[in-house]
Design a protein around this nucleic acid. Structure first.
Lengths: 145, 145
DNA sequence: TTTGAAATTGGGGTTCC
DNA sequence: GGAACCCCAATTTCAAA
């Protein structure tokens, strides 16, 4: 992970479809050399994945929220996380410190669907409490690199 | 936005570097037709961007946290958001409902850097309160489509 | 450097306002 | 007529050995 790898990552976090030739021009290296670095960065897991990020509104999901979830003790975290994976509204999820256990981000069509999501969560065996807040606006950032 | 667009998006949210030919095979269309749909999806903003997602740990950031931030009234949100943009540890930020105003996600090298980040935030004119929780583990999900 | 694969461009066709 | 689709073929560009 030298300066050049860093530079390659910086470009790919802005446009993940850049060709090796374009990347090569940016870092003054041959397309071949860049492809090799790219492969290594992927295999080492430094690049987790390259994905399209969609506009939730364009997908008909105009309401985003963060839901905090508390599990009762003795509850299977694995089972709960699998349930999350089957809810298409769930965009992100993380296990956190604090009085709740999970914080998840959901994108819903409308308030009715959000209510259905929270109800589905609260019905899940093991969920003892939830706390929902709406996302009013997302702030665009440059990110890690 | 028909079924085919939907299918294309589904594939691209899993692998954003799929070639048009591969996508074409998946949806039984020519590479050309797929490229055209791709262009339209980008121009309409449905595809916000395609970017590499990096492993924070590989980037030397092994400590993630969510920080809630309350601004005092009469504070310029714009100015505060610009300050966020200049902090490389800040990965995500959103304006939220609830007793805090912003929820941000940060990725730090260690607890010392996290402390520096929270101190920098608390020194910002207008920030009246913060509340920090650590991310213990992120859960992998499939996402919107 | 070379070779097969992929993207791009231009031409042409269809369908539906 | 024009817009939104699609395909094919030729050319240029790219990826990988």
């Amino acid at each position: 992970m030298d300066r050049i790898d860093h530079e390659i990552l910086r470009h790919l976090t802005r446009d993940g479809r850049l060709t090796f030739r374009e990347l090569g021009e940016a870092v003054h290296l041959s397309a071949n050399a860049v492809a090799e670095r790219f492969r290594r960065l992927q295999e080492s897991g430094t690049i987790r994945h390259i994905r399209a990020v969609l506009d939730p509104q364009a997908m008909g999901r105009s309401l985003e929220a963060q839901i905090e979830i508390k599990l009762s003790a003795q509850t299977s975290a694995l089972e709960f996380e699998n349930a999350l994976r089957h809810m298409p509204q769930v965009m992100e999820a993380a296990l956190m410190t604090g009085s709740f256990d999970y914080a998840i981000r959901v994108a819903c069509e409308n308030s009715h669907e959000l209510m259905q999501v929270t109800e589905a969560l609260r019905k899940h065996p093991g969920v003892s409490d939830t706390y929902t807040r709406l996302v009013l606006r997302e702030i665009e950032l440059s990110g890690m690199v």
